[in-house]
Simulated scan of single mutants.
Amino acid sequence: MNLHALRLFHVIATSGSVTRAAEILNISQPAITAQIKKFEKELSLPLFRPQGRGIALTDGGEKLASYAKRLFMIEQQMEQFLQEHRNGTAGHIRLSATYLPAHYLIPAWIAKFKQQYEQVEMMIYTTNSHDALHQLLNMEVDLAIYGGLPEKYPDIIQSEELFRDELWFVVAPNHRMANQRVSLPEMMENPFVMREEGSSTRQRLMALCRTHNVHSPKITLQFNGLHETMKAVIAGYGASFVSALVVRDHIERGELCRVYVEGVDMQNIISIFTRKEEPLSAAAANFIQLIRQNRWPKQ
Rank of each mutant, 00 (worst) to 15 (best):
K112E: 09
D142E: 09
A207P: 10
S17T: 04
M206S: 12
Y260S: 14
K112I: 06
I145A: 04
H4D: 13
H134Q: 13
Q293S: 12
E166F: 14
E262S: 05
S15M: 02
A97D: 04
V18T: 10
D249W: 05
S271K: 02
E75L: 15
A207Y: 12
A21W: 05
P279W: 08
L208G: 01
A178R: 07
L162Q: 00
P50R: 15
N190G: 11
L280R: 04
N128A: 04
H215E: 14
A97W: 01
D155S: 12
L149V: 15
M139L: 15
A97L: 05
G238C: 06
L95M: 12
F72G: 03
G254M: 05
Q135Y: 12
D165V: 08
M122Y: 01
P191Q: 08
L133H: 07
G54S: 03
H103G: 05
S271N: 02
I24L: 13
Y67A: 11
F169A: 07
D142G: 02
L71W: 09
W109T: 00
L143Y: 09
Y67Q: 14
M177N: 08
R202W: 07
S183L: 10
G60P: 01
L184F: 04
R94K: 15
Q158H: 12
D142Y: 04
V264E: 04
V261T: 02
E84V: 03
K41H: 07
Q29H: 09
M1E: 08
L290F: 06
M139N: 15
A284Y: 08
E196W: 06
Q80E: 14
G236S: 06
F81W: 11
S200K: 01
S240P: 07
I12Y: 01
S243Y: 00
L290A: 06
N294H: 08
K63V: 08
V18P: 05
F81Q: 11
V120L: 00
K37A: 15
P46S: 06
F39Q: 02
H130T: 15
R181W: 11
C257H: 03
